[in-house]
Design a protein around this nucleic acid. Sequence first.
DNA 1: CGAAAATTTGACGACTCTCAAGTCGAGTGG
DNA 2: CCACTCGACTTGAGAGTCGTCAAATTTTCG
Lengths: 259, 259
Amino acid sequence: MLKAHFDNEAELSSYPKTGRFLAGRLRHDMDDREKQILEELVEEVSVIDEPTRIYARGEICSRSTILIEGFVLRTLDGPKQRHAVSFQVPGDFIDLHNFALKRLDHNIDSIGRVTVGYVPHEKLQDIMMNEPHLARLFWFSTLLDAAMHREWVMKLGQLTTTRRLAHIFAEIWRRLQMVGLGDEAGFDTPLTQAQYAEMAGVTAIHVNRAVKSLREQGIVHVMRNRVEIPDRDALEEFAQFDPDYLYGHGSLSLREGLT
Amino acid sequence: MLKAHFDNEAELSSYPKTGRFLAGRLRHDMDDREKQILEELVEEVSVIDEPTRIYARGEICSRSTILIEGFVLRTLDGPKQRHAVSFQVPGDFIDLHNFALKRLDHNIDSIGRVTVGYVPHEKLQDIMMNEPHLARLFWFSTLLDAAMHREWVMKLGQLTTTRRLAHIFAEIWRRLQMVGLGDEAGFDTPLTQAQYAEMAGVTAIHVNRAVKSLREQGIVHVMRNRVEIPDRDALEEFAQFDPDYLYGHGSLSLREGLT
DNA sequence: CGAAAATTTGACGACTCTCAAGTCGAGTGG
DNA sequence: CCACTCGACTTGAGAGTCGTCAAATTTTCG
């Protein structure tokens, strides 16, 4: 099972704030010293109860944010409506890119209740100068985002709404399991059909029809706060989903680590 | 005019292979020593006459590639057809990400005649260890790719085919002008309607209808090997195009440079 | 000149949006 | 405990966008 790739409890008891960072990807490439340095980068932890725009496009930020619990969306304000260009799960550095870009090109919106940790950019600057291996891992994590974006471009360009939805569920499930969340039957999530619509680039009404179709085909059962999937292979085949782009333990993975 | 942002001839005579890297973005943040180091990273220059898959998804690469002349597409093989997830213009480091990811998640396909320069990963490794500022710029350039991907996700999710096409033309024109190419009336390009279709996620037939519509509205005149645009503002307004995400000299730009 | 590639057009069907209405579920105040 | 309320979810009908199939025309290049 996927969860075996990540010894959830041990990592989280040692590193409660950053124990999920790159779990299932290159976390095994970090040594204890580096994990400790990372954990100590977080200067403040904050719980956000209500859906909130944590950062807005154009803001200048002096700190970056790691998601500890919950879901957030990266969004752009399109001509018609807000569009979600990706989602983040616990363990993701939400906005590492704003350290290098200074200004954000998109918004960060929380969904449901989230816990985040803040890392001041001065500390990241020290990492860049003195910890080249950690710096490489930070770069790697932003490249993962880019790889996911590319998959989304393909998804929006080529899949029908029903398959897009299936693809979204497949990605969420895999990513949650890489960081020790989700379970054998599916996953819990605060996402609503309106938010799936924002990710799929269609109306909530049409998402609803797609949800109905997935349910009738027995591929995915979407409920309030919960998604259940009877058969992973059936889902991933229907969604044309190949998890390689997540750079987990598939054919593109980096078992040898970074130099 | 935009070309004034980049003194084309001076940079290219001093740095013929890499003089366009980050032009119009953070190139002004590089000093002569860094520009010289970058120029010397290129160990081999190659001209590719025919459309070629330069790299295929899954390959392990020991070098990265900078585009010196011509156009290339990043593509993914979708269920129905190849899909272009972005294009690159001269000066772009095509596959810097494969230095950190080791294996590519997508293909690199040349369009028309291109000239590329190869940079061995060992040399990049030296940069990471010894030139933190250049390393930051490399990171920055991959983050630009991610920002463009996000815009494409929004574009595919929210714009009609005709506006998508206009958006593509607007982006190509801006990016060419940032590196000293294109002109006041438009730009030359080897891209065909079939390739615009791959970028827009529609069929070539439908692209043709959109091209006709843009021509009839007087917004864009698409010709063989050439695109002409009478009025930039009209194009960009129609396309809902805001160039900020290119991190050029707009509101998200970084006039102060990176530390 | 002839072949191959690129572009153009038309007809029909499928997918998705919009508008409109109605149902379900969780939390609140009486 | 129940009626109320609000947000989320569900369904239907008609219109517009886009894909598919088929074919014709134009351009490029040997």
